Simulated scan of single mutants.
Amino acid sequence: MSHSPLLNLPGPSQELLDDIEAAIASARAFVSAFDPELVVVFSPDHYNGFFYRAMPPFCIGTAAQGVGDYGTYKGPLNVQAELATDCVRAVLDADVDIAISAAMDVDHGTVQPLQNLFGDAASVPVIPIFINSVATPLGPLRRVRALGDAVGRYLGTLGKRVLIIGSGGLSHDPPVPTLATAPPAALDRIVHGVPMTTEQRQARQTAVMEAAREFAAGNGSLAPLNPDWDHAFLDLLDTNRLSETDAWDNAWIAEQAGNSAHEVRTWVAAFAALAAQGGYRTDNHFYRAAPDLIAGFAIRTAVSAS
């Protein structure tokens, strides 16, 4: 499922919010019926927990806390430390390099789906898995699929009902700072992790809201959404053609769908983890090109065919 900080801020139309909430409610019903014993979340970060002082492509947390950005949950998550550590071992044994964190900070990209699906982000046992989707240079998508496959093979040994979440927008290009363009204060944050003051965080929220208003009005410099690209990606998932993403070039993804479209890496990893158990089928086929959110917003549910 996609996420967006703008879901928690003034600006989006009530019609859009109602449409997305109805789709989330369907996903919530799917999750409730499945009644998972463990939740694994593949998610990005937006320079709230991971920074250029040491930016791993992948990281599994054995403990994690929400930073509370954009009104999301702030506090510790119910991370299953022993299972998370075993998952790290299994991924390394599968020849996929991954970092481990015993003090992972996670932002709305991780917490918002948990809150939407469970109400309380800390109420469910989780393993958080970070996938760098913002800080270039990025590795090839085939490595993301290899990560998902390794995680899925490990999860298949547990004998548990495991819900796998991939949290990311599809085509979108929000105003995210980069090493080349960030002003000094933002550079300190994305490189060194210098915390934002309350005033800076409020200013950031205001800037995001203003960028969304301009974008929805057809103004500004952000790259346009690409619903055709989004639908092609979703069709690829629906028809079990995940391996085709191995050949996708990172520059092509950004050109077609915006710099933050790399968040589809979380979807690739999640579906690869499911596919490690064999074929699957998808349902809850929701998609909305949502300029008010500066994002192609989608939701899919899927179950193993076996």
Rank of each mutant, 00 (worst) to 15 (best):
S243D: 14
S221C: 02
G49L: 00
D149Y: 09
I294C: 05
A99F: 12
D246L: 00
W252S: 01
Q202T: 14
D107P: 14
A257D: 02
D292W: 05
A212D: 14
E244H: 15
P76Y: 14
A295K: 03
A203L: 06
G61A: 04
D230E: 09
G218Q: 00
P12C: 12
A211L: 01
E255I: 03
L222M: 10
P174M: 09
S26A: 11
D97N: 15
W229K: 02
F58A: 04
E214K: 00
G296Q: 03
P137M: 03
M55N: 08
T85H: 15
G278P: 13
A81M: 08
S4I: 12
F297C: 12
W248Q: 09
T198A: 12
S13M: 08
P177M: 03
P10Y: 08
T206C: 00
N284S: 08
S171C: 09
R153Y: 06
S260K: 01
T239E: 14
N240A: 05
N116P: 13
D249Q: 06
V40Y: 13
P175I: 00
S171V: 06
T301D: 14
A217K: 03
P12A: 12
V268S: 13
S171A: 08
P177N: 08
Q202D: 10
P175V: 01
S260E: 08
G258V: 01
A276K: 10
G166W: 12
L187W: 11
R201P: 01
A29W: 08
I60T: 02
P12S: 13
A212E: 06
P44Y: 10
D249F: 04
P174N: 12
H231D: 07
P195M: 05
W267H: 07
A23S: 15
G152S: 05
A270H: 13
G258M: 04
S26F: 15
N116V: 05
T136A: 15
A257P: 03
S260M: 05
H46K: 02
A64H: 11
E199P: 06
I100A: 06
N284Q: 10
T282A: 08
A103Q: 06
V31L: 05
A185Y: 08
T181R: 11
A270S: 12
G75V: 10
I60W: 03
L293I: 04
F271G: 07
P10R: 07
G139A: 06
V79H: 02
A298C: 08
P227D: 05
V162P: 02
A64I: 05
V106F: 12
T206H: 11
D173V: 01
R145D: 08
R142Q: 12
A232Q: 10
A212I: 04
I20T: 00
A298H: 08
Q65M: 13
S221Y: 11
A273D: 13
Y154I: 11
A150I: 13
A150Y: 13
V144K: 10
V191A: 04
D292A: 09
M1A: 13
S101M: 12
V208G: 11
G218P: 04
